[in-house]
Design a protein around this nucleic acid. Sequence first.
DNA 1: GATTTACTACGAAACTCTTCGTTGACATCC
DNA 2: GGATGTCAACGAAGAGTTTCGTAGTAAATC
Lengths: 129, 129
Amino acid sequence: MTDRHPPRPTDSELAILGVLWERGPSTVRDVHDALNKDGATGYTTVLKILQIMTEKGLVVRDESERAHVYESRYGEQKTQRQLLADLAERAFGGSATKLVMQALSGRKASAAELNAIRELLDTLEGESK
Amino acid sequence: MTDRHPPRPTDSELAILGVLWERGPSTVRDVHDALNKDGATGYTTVLKILQIMTEKGLVVRDESERAHVYESRYGEQKTQRQLLADLAERAFGGSATKLVMQALSGRKASAAELNAIRELLDTLEGESK
DNA sequence: GATTTACTACGAAACTCTTCGTTGACATCC
DNA sequence: GGATGTCAACGAAGAGTTTCGTAGTAAATC
């Protein structure tokens, strides 16, 4: 076995991953600048979290340049699915279907969104045939 | 305003809430016994977490008997929706629809489950008409 | 009434997360 | 080449989480 469960990212880590997914490989300064459009996070704070994420294996670091370049190790969708599976396990008795149904009834979706979901259902049903 | 955001429950807290939702109002011993079917958690650990949850307002405590009785303050569905909204915000750019679609495509659902979801979609569409 | 049992309360220890100041290395610019 | 700026690394502080030992108190038992 090469790869254990990647650890669940914390809130701050997720915010940083969001930047990396959007921008691609980035330096600490890139990430810091992107995040500081909204709230204020110190430069060294971002650096520290990226270092921790490197230790955890959430990101990969390229040290060939003076300003190290960080890249998310797992894709956005993979991480999202991991988070969903995790939440299903912890709060929905392991049932992803319950999770979906709760997510659907918990809010008013537009007709367009409902149709998009319906199409996805059709695709899935076709595949599993 | 009477009620601020309830705080996001931690993993341990969620496990305890699961017991309270299933059993209804329970003493510490009830919760402890229910949890220890699986893993091992000390009695005083459960007590402590319930005390903290009381401070946070996640549960309500009835102290009229010697063995205090704890009850979840928020229903299971309300909490689940809160967690989903929270995850949508943190990891899906605020889009619950993206969350649903990722949850659907992330796993193979049975035909029966897909049909249940489809029915729910119909109901939702009827309502929003 | 004394002993045993059941329960809450208190507090401490270990751990994680978040934050940031400081330091030292490296590069760039007068 | 000495000053200025940029960067990674380190360390530490404060908050939250999880764990549980110990103490105190009330009830039940003998």
